[in-house]
Amino acid sequence: MSDLQIQNLHMHFSGVRALDDVSFEVNEGEIFSLIGPNGSGKSTLFNCINGFCKPQQGSMIYNNINLKTIKPHEIVKEGISRTFQNLQNVPYMTLLENVLLGAHRRLTIQDTINRWFSQKEREREEALALEIMDFLGIANFEKKYLSGQPYGIQKLVEIARALICKPKLILMDEPAAGMNDQETLEIAKIISEIRDVLGITVLVVEHDMKLVMSISDQICVLDSGKILAMGKPDEVKNDPDVIKVFLGDEAHA
C-alpha cells in the first residue's frame, strides 16, 4: 500500500525551477532515499511536504490527506516529522528540553499544569524523552546544554526530537552530513532501526553513497528539479544517466 504520493510537483522560486514535475510514491515501512547533486531540489521537496513551501502545481497525498492545504505546524499531527539539513535547535536549552520540544503536541495543557505541581508528572514527561534518547545513545548527556555539544550529538538530538512525537513517516535531511566514517555507520544503523524497531517509514536525503546504497529500499535521483532515475539501489547504481551526473560531479570536486 502506498503511503506518501507525490504527483507532478512543480515548485519554482521566481525563475529558479527547484522542482520540475516530480512524481513518486513512498510505501509504508520503506526506507526511501532521495539523492542528487547540490541544488537539485531535495530540501525543497522536504519543505513542500512540510508545508514551508507552497508548490505551484501538483499534489501531495499522505494517507488520503492532502498535504497542500495543511499548515506547517499541523503536519506533525498527521504523523510526519522531520530533521533539518542545517541544525535547527535551541542552543540554550538542555538536550532533554530540546528533545521534549518535539513532544509539544503530545503534552496537553493539563500535562503542563500537572507538571508544575508534581515531581512524578515531571518524571513521566522526561521518561518519554529519555526513552528515545536511550535509543539513540545520548541519554547520558540529557542535562547538558546543547550549546557546545559536539556536532554529532546535536544531529542526534534533532533526530530524537523528530522521533518523540511518534511519527509514522520521518523526513531526514542529510543526517550524516559532516560526520566521520564511524558516525556515519552509526547513523546507518539508526536509520535501519527506526524502520525495523519503531516501524517508521523513512524518507531520507543523503549524499553519502555508501550509506544510501546499504540501507535504501528505493532510491530516487533528482537533478535540477527533475527525476533522473528511480528504483532499487542496484538499478540506480548502474543507470548510465546517474553515473554521468555523479561521476561528472565528482570529477569536478
Partner: peptide
Amino acid sequence: KLGRAFMAIRDSEQAAQASG
C-alpha cells in the same frame, strides 16, 4: 512546554513549526 515553544520560536521558527 510553553517556555520551550517560546525559545524554539526565538532560535528556529522552522524547528518550532516542525514540532507542531
